[in-house]
Amino acid sequence: MRLWGVDLGELIELTLDHIYLAGVPLIVGLLLAIPLGWLAVQRKWLYGPLLAATGLMYTIPSLALFIILPGILGTQILDPLNVLVAMTVYTIALLTRTVADALQSVPDHVKQAATAMGYSPLRRLFAVDLPLGVPVIAAGMRVAAVSNVSIVSVAALVGVSQLGILFTAGFNRNAMGPILIGVVACLILATLFDAIILSVSKALTPWQTSRSGS
């Protein structure tokens, strides 16, 4: 079956690739941003330099990164791993500040109470600071998700399969159909990511809904 010059089977495949290339780095990036953000908050002198450095990573042009990475990682230019690593870098760039903000959003008296109860700093991070930072982290994740969905499509220029392929194909064939379908698919994907992040955040913060409910 074809729609506006795009094979439906191919569209589904491209969409799944896109989800994989944008989604996995979102998770991995968050897992790496947590220790970085925590370090920035724990060691005051690290806060400025660390956030400046991670922030700068976001300004590396994606095309450049896709081309440079194979040289650094020893991968083939078509290897999706390049895209995964690049997207992880962008996610870290966005989420390190988010995590630092989230940890700092926890009220002081709550942190002090946790310390007074006998939490070690690391245990406090997982038991108190991170759970309370979920709403702020979720907000940052939503931005990172949209950013990932959009940046991944650039990888079409180095031939990695995902929805961006529709843009290059449309451009080469001088056809609007594939481009439109690609844009719509990206929009739907971004909305899907957004909805998932929101509902996970809701599930992790039952105390927030019940507060307004009382």
Binding site: H109, V110, Q112, A113, A114, T115, A116, M117, G118, V128, P131, L132, T205, W207, R211
Partner: peptide, 16 residues
């Protein structure tokens, strides 16, 4: 700290 009870000003409960 675990062996000493501590009541913080304004309760300081864990909201989550």
């Amino acid at each position: 700290r675990r062996s000493i009870g501590y009541v913080i000003q304004h309760a300081g409960l864990f909201p989550h």
